[in-house]
Amino acid sequence: MKYGDLISVVVPVYNRAHEVVRSVGSICAQSYQNLEILIVDDCSTDDIEGAVTDLKDSRVRLVRREKNGGAAAARNSGLAAATGDLVAFMDSDDISLFDRFAQEMALFCSLPEDYIGVYAAAIAHTDTTEDARAQAAARVLPPIHRRPLSGNLFDATLEGNFIDMPTMLLKKSAVLAAGPFDERLRNNVDWDFTLRLTRQGKFGFVPQPLYVFSYVPRVASGNDHISHNPRYSVLSYAYITGKLRRAGHVGPALARHYAAAGSYLMRAERPKFARRYFAAARKITPNDPRLLAHLVLSHMPRIHRWARGRSTRFH
Rank of each mutant, 00 (worst) to 15 (best):
A274G: 01
Y258C: 02
Y119N: 07
S236I: 00
G84V: 05
R276T: 15
V219E: 14
Q200T: 06
F314Y: 11
R100P: 06
A247V: 04
R22P: 03
F154E: 01
L185F: 05
V52H: 01
V21E: 13
Q103N: 13
I163P: 04
M266W: 04
A307C: 08
V60L: 04
P301K: 04
V20A: 13
L291E: 07
F193T: 08
H315P: 08
R308P: 03
T83C: 01
D42G: 04
P112C: 11
I303E: 03
P148D: 08
L111A: 08
V52D: 06
L141T: 10
I123W: 05
N223A: 05
A279V: 11
V63Y: 07
L185P: 09
G84Q: 03
D155N: 04
T194F: 06
L235P: 00
R61P: 04
Y119F: 12
D131E: 15
F89A: 01
G160H: 04
R290K: 11
N76E: 02
G70A: 04
R308M: 13
D46F: 09
I7T: 01
V189S: 06
L6W: 09
V60Q: 01
V13E: 09
F273N: 14
R256M: 08
G160A: 06
N223I: 01
V20N: 10
G204E: 06
M165A: 12
A174K: 03
R275L: 14
H299Q: 10
N187Q: 13
R290T: 07
A138C: 13
L197I: 10
K243A: 12
S8Q: 02
R61K: 13
T194K: 03
L111P: 07
A121L: 08
D114L: 07
I240V: 11
A17P: 08
R61S: 13
T285L: 10
F314W: 10
A260L: 15
I27F: 08
T157H: 11
L141K: 12
Y239D: 12
N223H: 03
V250D: 15
P217S: 03
A178Q: 00
F205R: 06
N76G: 01
P286D: 01
R256I: 07
R313V: 10
P166H: 04
V13F: 02
L62P: 07
T167G: 09
E19G: 01
L235C: 08
A81E: 09
F162L: 06
R256F: 11
A102I: 08
H228P: 05
V24G: 03
V189H: 03
A274F: 02
